[in-house]
Design a protein around this nucleic acid. Structure first.
Lengths: 190, 190
DNA sequence: TCATTCATGTAAGTGGTTACATGATTCA
DNA sequence: TGAATCATGTAACCACTTACATGAATGA
């Protein structure tokens, strides 16, 4: 599926939870979907305009003059369902850490260690964030029907962070073995 | 770091292994870095032109008329080292599966199951690929100095695939519990 | 000879971010 | 009063993909 449809999907999804302004859509995407999705102003406002033109959202009075509150129409709800069911078009892989490590021999073992330690710290930070989000979702009485699905996404984040932590620690040991076997070859039997 | 520098880094990295044509650079990036990096023709040829203009690569005679063989200059090797040491600029998160699951209540548990089963199959496939790559690297006598670093990247892929498999299976159980508790509430405690 | 692969490039278009311009409202 | 936040939008730019145009070499 075209990548442009994904912005539409995220915006309709945000509005499906509750009607809100474009500004609030951006905040919702950043704060609620932030750990697995992002959209910028430059995407959100044009998307709102075209969704409105196509009749998928309605524009109502906002709390302030000049502000609007968008809400899904019936057609918009259908549209969201259709989009969500379309197969995803995976983005091309681009992992900067792996690219650097692949040329690890060029930058040296110490520089690699720094990169990996940084990845480890990041993953630990993420894991803490996921725990906080989980606690927040568990404590939220309002969205009981969404809760199991939201927890699924948090769980995916936790699994991924755990894997990154395990890998990075194993990788540091492997690098230590590598340099040790260069310095004191007699000490190690593979 | 700017995203454009990353193409430069990948191209210089490919040429650091051995001199080759632009066409071969693209093949190397696709086949060797494929599981964590990608570049298209439209990026590679302009990058080669600008790297040549800046003196980071030399253009030699190719095997055929009209074809060139690019190789790193000393300045190019320095440039690669500099680029590899710069901190990465992580791309904004965009996980289509998570976006869909977050609105899982809208599409329903069965549709979510399909998505998750697909993710499971993909991860298993990736795991097999990583095992094949690992075997290939282990059997390659030529690149002994690069081997430990290449294995690090394969290991990262394996960890990530394992995490995806474990998560997806757990998620399917969670969805089963969810629907079971809706159909036959008396059967389940919690 | 004819399809495939090797090879180099360009052009058009998409998708996306960032910075800017503007102004009202809230609250300290 | 003045800073922070809410709010809407546009313009310029960057990164990237895809499709196209071209043609030589290889090999069935």
């Amino acid at each position: 599926m075209a990548r442009g449809k994904q912005t539409e999907m995220a915006v309709l999804g945000a509005l499906s939870v509750q009607p809100m302004s474009g500004y609030a859509v951006r905040e919702a995407i950043r704060d609620v979907l932030g750990h697995f999705w992002s959209e910028s102003f430059g995407q959100i406002y044009p998307a709102l305009t075209s969704l409105h033109r196509e009749g998928f959202i309605e524009r109502g009075e906002g709390a302030r003059p000049g502000a609007s509150t968008y809400s899904l129409t019936a057609a918009g709800r259908d549209r969201l369902l259709t989009l969500l069911q379309q197969p995803e078009n995976p983005a091309p892989a681009r992992n900067g850490l792996m690219l650097r490590l692949f040329f690890g021999h060029t930058i040296g073992a110490d520089a690699c260690r720094v990169l990996i330690q940084h990845a480890n710290a990041t993953a630990r930070q993420q894991l803490e964030n996921y725990h906080a989000i989980r606690a927040h979702i568990d404590g939220d009485e309002e969205s009981a029907e969404n809760r199991p699905y939201w927890l699924l996404t948090v769980s995916a984040g936790e699994h991924s962070a755990h894997a990154a932590i395990a890998w990075s620690e194993q990788a540091l040991v492997a690098l230590d073995d590598l340099t040790a076997s260069c310095d004191v070859p007699a000490d190690r039997s593979v």
